[in-house]
Design a protein around this nucleic acid. Structure first.
Lengths: 338, 338
DNA sequence: CTGAAAGCGCTAACAG
DNA sequence: CTGTTAGCGCTTTCAG
């Protein structure tokens, strides 16, 4: 593998000059520069980023920390979409991505900070972490620049990008209310997720503003899982016949809700309206298609990378970004017929 | 950031000893070892992998080269599943993953080899590359250890993992034939993919073995795209009324085929049988559910990482791995009623 | 069992 | 405009 030393020898200059020439510094004679460039090409030179990183104290690498890279997370490719967006923006700006997996992290017994420091990543993007995950605390306390996805926590070195989950939920519930539904249930995710809190808040707000009453019995947890949600909906409906519409905190759970209704012989949307959240691909393929609250997941990843790199490069920023959601009306909601 | 130098100073030993102690060499006094371990913990030490990589000439990093990390590839999460599998196996074996994106690679005008060498990855896994992609040639010629996904090409330094695509296709077509279909069309992917070639071969073989005739007019390209396939199927059916079953080289295209049939008022499976390939998540959610040839995509990634690391660590291996496919019969195929 | 010293490939003062 | 020198943090002979 050729090094700048080799180039220096062949070109008959010092390594310093080679380094400067290759890095586009101005104080190099044009002739020398060209000579060096030619030799570099000829010798098929590639810079060694490890060596550069060692001396520069930065690696042009971003750590991507996701807990969702597992066998299960395939249906709901939130994780993947975020990753695509991050990848796109980061590589455009000259950063490479290194993948960390929190599952394995635990196996290895390495902490977040250790992982980041060992690899000397310049910063990290974290996704899919739970509210009370010990890593979250560690992140906030460490001084590694970091952007959180969907966790509105910030500090000197950590920012976040998220959508207004309360507002998104509100849109969904208002839609249901505007269709004449008076008794609207909710299937929420698990409590360890910030988004669940927020979506619940939005649900309550919407009910209030629409003059509908909030009943805690109508709110049950589906743990963001299709199966759990199916069960939860079945129970909810059996216990509370008055409910004519359900807002689900994720599409996957809405899919479960659909199944539950089918089993119970309840027609969606004639007898039961269902709204999901996320607009995953499946949402437009199920029958009936899901009315849902869409978020631009790819864009979330994109913005996360963009924000992190702004932080890394010392740009002025308030370290918070909010993206829009929009209500997508399909076939799973209809007027209240009762 | 503390270094082994700091540890050496505090512990009152040399850096050499620290290095040896921390790396578990045997020739270190147990007392010294413990002292060093204690100091390291106290100082919150993390090894610098860049420095280590520089001197050791290897980085414990695997480059993951995928062309599918783009906005479009979300429906078909083949890419993601492979990634999950790779990630799982690699991180278990102590390797980190670094993501390269071929799209951006072109923007940056960096070649595959450059990317790998700059980051000093120990090896690479390549997925989603086309048959005549210039990178493929480069890969085979370079001496960077590398595993290809679904491209049966190998050399001294490159191996591959794939499924027997011909056999998979054969199973699908035989299933159709066994249902009494005599006129079986095929929607293939683009010609630049090895899997397309192979699936076509399997299709032809099956026809032959079942005593059915091969008609090139019955084979059209859907370019692995849902929309393209929809159009292709519409045209195929209009031109060749005799066709009663279609084998699609991907589920996404089979979904397109389903749409085409719906538009044409053809009932699936009563009037037209459809088989897909891949068993993507959507396949079990569409109506009707797709009969399809399933492959264990996660496992492909897992095996790719496993194979690569075997190669890296000098294990004996023939550098080829084949995985099984299995026919999954659902609702989109039925007996020939004509 | 331990330490001194060299060097991985690169950048960055500093001095010409 | 160019070269000398030092050093990033680590591993590894080679001598004790």
């Amino acid at each position: 593998m050729t090094t700048i030393k080799d180039i220096a020898r062949v070109a008959g200059v010092s390594v310093t000059t080679v380094s400067r020439a290759l890095n586009g510094y101005s104080d190099v004679n044009e002739k020398t520069r060209q000579k060096i460039a030619a030799v570099a090409r000829e010798l098929n030179y590639s810079p060694n980023t490890l060596a550069r990183g060692l001396v520069m104290q930065k690696s042009k690498t971003i750590g991507l920390l996701v807990s969702g890279i597992s066998r299960e997370s395939v249906k709901d490719n939130f994780t993947f979409e975020v990753l695509c967006g991050v990848n796109e923006r980061a590589s455009t700006l000259g950063y490479d991505l290194i993948l960390f997996n929190t599952n394995t992290m635990m196996q290895r017994e390495k902490t977040y900070t250790q992982l980041c420091r060992e690899r000397r990543v310049d910063g990290a993007i974290i996704q899919g972490i739970k509210k009370e995950d010990p890593y979250l605390k560690e992140v906030v306390e460490s001084d590694i620049p970091c952007v959180l996805v969907d966790i509105p926590v910030h500090s000197n070195s950590v920012g976040y990008v998220t959508t207004d989950n309360a507002l998104g939920a509100k849109k969904a519930v208002e839609h249901l209310a505007s269709l004449g539904h008076k008794h609207i249930g909710m299937i929420n995710g698990h409590e360890d997720a910030f988004v669940s809190q927020e979506r619940l808040n939005g649900y309550r707000e919407a009910l209030k503003e629409c003059g509908l009453s909030f009943r805690s019995e109508w709110v049950v947890s589906g743990n963001f899982e299709e199966k759990k949600a199916e069960k939860a909906v079945r129970e909810l409906i059996n216990r509370h016949k008055e409910v004519t519409a359900i807002f689900c905190a994720s599409d996957l759970m809405a899919l479960g809700a659909l199944k539950a209704c089918k089993e119970l012989g309840l027609h969606v949307p004639k007898e039961m309206s269902i709204v999901g959240y996320d607009n995953i691909v499946l949402a437009s393929y199920s029958s009936p298609n899901l009315t849902t609250v869409g978020q631009e997941v790819y864009q979330i990843g994109y913005e996360a990378a963009d924000l992190l790199i702004e932080m890394l490069e010392g740009k002025e920023t308030n370290m918070k970004r909010y993206l829009d959601t929009k209500l997508i009306i399909r076939e799973s909601t209809d007027k209240n017929h009762n």
